[in-house]
Write a protein that binds this DNA or RNA. Structure first.
Lengths: 288, 288
DNA sequence: AAATAAAGTTGAACCGGTTCAATTATAGTG
DNA sequence: CACTATAATTGAACCGGTTCAACTTTATTT
């Protein structure tokens, strides 16, 4: 059987309370500290995190809810997150809701039942449908952090990407390079980030007195395939852009494939700029 | 305060033991069952998974250790895995070891300390360095499943991809189509899957009496960039292949970029076949 | 050296479930 | 109907930690 705190106490000749104090970093008398440390080492004692959690009602876990595990934007953030929480001895329970509201709700409940000590929520396209679930966390004083999504009615911490401004700058850059016919591949019509990115595009056009052309505005649903077909559609419509702005990584990839397939040379015939950093960016010549 | 099993027992007028039996699916007398169900509903009782775990020493969690969260091969398996364990009310603690042995060891220990009920281990390139850690699980009767990696000395369950054979078939296919100069973009020299895939390639060549040409064997380290530069190198070496076999998804992508950049047309001048299913496969014309 | 303050230790009770020996209710038998 | 056999219930003890009031030891003051 695994040694317990009582075994340690017995071996060291002190009380359980003393061992507990040691484990929690409180001060012991020198000679007791030495005895406890010796006993811990000899028994190879490891504290039981579950038992610990029972009394102080902490699970030392953080729930992370993510639309899809194959979304590189989200997973790269989770990687950094994991590295951070690990330092405090927390672990991450990762839930993929497969871009489905009901599964999202289910997962939020699931994590509640596991008494996670905190929640990190990645963007979904139905912010209003899960307000109750999120409030359930807040009312129980469980901290919630929302990543890059628009929940105006919820009092949670948020980490926002300045989508509108980033978008504006990207498009402005193209305009400064002389482009006047700039196509955009938007994400999905429901998502708040997509709306923001679209707004930045429109604002940039407006600032420079360029009128919006509907042929040059497509929706690619944030996916490889969507970006591919939106780009094909745009480039085959007859009304050719001189630059394309793809509003995420996957659609940029899809756009690249479409462009190369149509034998359009970048950047001579067409410029392209994409949101998100792009593993292949460094490799492609001319670089994006 | 959250209601406990004792509150339920009190409200229903039965003992805690009876409520516990109900929660564990044992039979109650009809009238007791009704009272308990009513009390649970009225109090909105949820069982405390942590307390449950303390007595029977189960954490209802499964540790999953993965080289990189941005590896689509691994994450797509994790997605399916999560969906499966969720049905049994298990959750997944995901650990990304960032392709680093020490972090891998640390993570294995970390998950042990959290008393996970099982471990799923994704391939690493240092199988021998973690044997002790894995044995620590096995000696404590914690089931371990190893995914597509070669641990001949460990008595764990394994899920293997038949890398050698799949590789053989891919290459054989190319040969049957008339190719004689077939390039391969291998993964990394240390990984067992890569060795297997390489072996399949060589076996196919041997079967058809084609001799190996070193110009046509490159290593791409399983990455986009690696695939890209390996392909560039091969295609610029002067000794041109008529077909290329890229041994994973990322390198296939990198190879495609390289090929299109060199203005080589697929499949007229060059055929390409890739290991792993490929989100863009459907979209690219001619299809891979 | 005695009185007081501060620091450290003790161990029983607790967290919210499960378990099981003892007990009680129901069903089956002749 | 009495007598078993079986099924269901009870509640105290337990899982492995934390906590805190009561106590002991050490340090400081006078």
């Amino acid at each position: 059987m695994k040694p317990t705190i009582r075994d340690v106490a017995h071996k060291a000749g002190v009380s359980v309370g003393t061992v507990s104090r040691y484990l929690n970093g409180l001060k012991l008398r020198e000679y007791n500290r030495i005895k406890v440390e010796k006993a811990i080492k000899e028994l190879n004692f490891k504290e039981n995190i579950i038992a610990k959690g029972l009394k102080n009602n902490r699970s030392m876990t953080i729930g992370v809810v993510i639309g899809s595990l194959t979304d590189i934007f989200a997973t790269s953030i989770v990687t950094a997150l994991e590295r951070t929480v690990e330092r405090e001895n927390y672990s991450i329970i990762l839930c993929d809701y497969e871009d489905d509201v009901d599964r999202l709700k289910y997962k939020l409940q699931f994590l509640r039942d596991r008494s996670v000590d905190g929640l990190v929520l990645f963007p979904s396209i139905w912010p209003n449908k899960i307000i109750n679930n999120v409030n359930d966390y807040l009312h129980n004083n469980i901290p919630v952090v929302i990543i890059d999504d628009d929940f105006p009615s919820l009092e949670t911490d948020k980490i926002m990407v300045d989508n509108m401004n980033a978008s504006f700058q990207a498009v402005e850059r193209l305009i400064e390079m002389g482009h006047r016919k700039i196509g955009i591949i938007n994400g999905s019509k429901e998502s708040s980030t997509s709306k923001e990115r679209s707004k930045g595009y429109l604002n940039a056009l407006k600032k420079y007195g360029i009128s919006k052309e509907s042929d040059l505005v497509k929706w690619g649903n944030y996916s490889n395939e969507g970006g591919y077909s939106a780009t094909k559609e745009m480039l085959l419509s007859g009304n050719l852009p001189t630059a394309i702005y793809a509003t995420n990584y996957y659609m940029t990839l899809g756009a690249m494939v479409a462009i190369q397939e149509l034998n359009i040379s970048v950047p001579h015939e067409l410029s392209i700029i994409g949101f998100d950093r792009f593993p292949l960016s460094e490799v492609i010549k001319p670089a994006l």
